[in-house]
Design a protein around this nucleic acid. Structure first.
Lengths: 116, 116
DNA sequence: GCTATGTACCTTGCATCGCTATGTAATTTC
DNA sequence: GAAATTACATAGCGATGCAAGGTACATAGC
């Protein structure tokens, strides 16, 4: 008997893994350089092979802004549509550090369990 | 000016990180040995420093059972309250492998971005 | 015996957040 | 001038961790 993968389960799971981790990854990316929303979607896809929807990124960025972890600024382009650039605040950097510690500790535990 | 940590944000974030990762960690633990629900809470706390509530673990185990990724079996104890032991199925092992690949790839990306 | 604590299971309802779907508007390409 | 791309935004749905509440039995201390 062939064991089949329940792709519905896996798809659902992947989407759940993104919850929280997305916020972390976005903040990591914003720490290295300010980005605009549409750009982040491409960066995520390229660097992390993570497909994310526009309906995910814009609410997320607004949440981070409301929490004062990022600031945004419109940038008029010489050519093309105006872009809203997001930048990590000092507070964002401090929070990112806490998140990093948590994630790395968690990650270590997972690695340990995996190798058991 | 002192930069304060918004613990509410961090608490919320940690809870979000657990979404999805919890399912993965539980399955990893169950692969190494069959466990009962109450035991998993302690194992999680000990091995992963992850505090999880009972209202989290029992619905999660039932979901996994419904998806046929685990089976359960009552074990009458010589002494003490009966326990419901959960065990990863063959299907569960195969799914866990897919999840492992996804998580490790994601993890690699995060490491890369962090060091950028 | 009786109370408190611990073990072990379960369920209801809320809050959060990724995603689909949809919309707007400007720009670029053919 | 039609189609595709860039770039933003929002409403509503679905999935899931958690607080809160419940049941039932076991054990330890008084």
């Amino acid at each position: 008997m062939q064991l089949e993968i329940n792709s519905y389960f896996i798809t659902k799971w992947k989407s759940q893994v993104k919850k929280g981790l997305l916020e972390y990854i976005i903040m990591l990316l914003l720490k290295s350089k300010p980005c605009y929303g549409y750009e982040l979607i491409n960066e995520m896809n390229q660097f992390a092979s993570l497909e994310i929807a526009e309906g995910t990124i814009y609410p997320l960025l607004n949440r981070l802004k409301k929490e004062k972890l990022v600031t945004s600024e419109w940038a008029e382009m010489e050519t093309g549509i105006p872009r809203k650039y997001y930048k990590l605040t000092e507070e964002g950097i401090v929070h990112l550090e806490v998140m990093k510690q948590y994630f790395e500790a968690l990650n270590l535990s997972i690695t340990r369990i995996t190798k058991e």
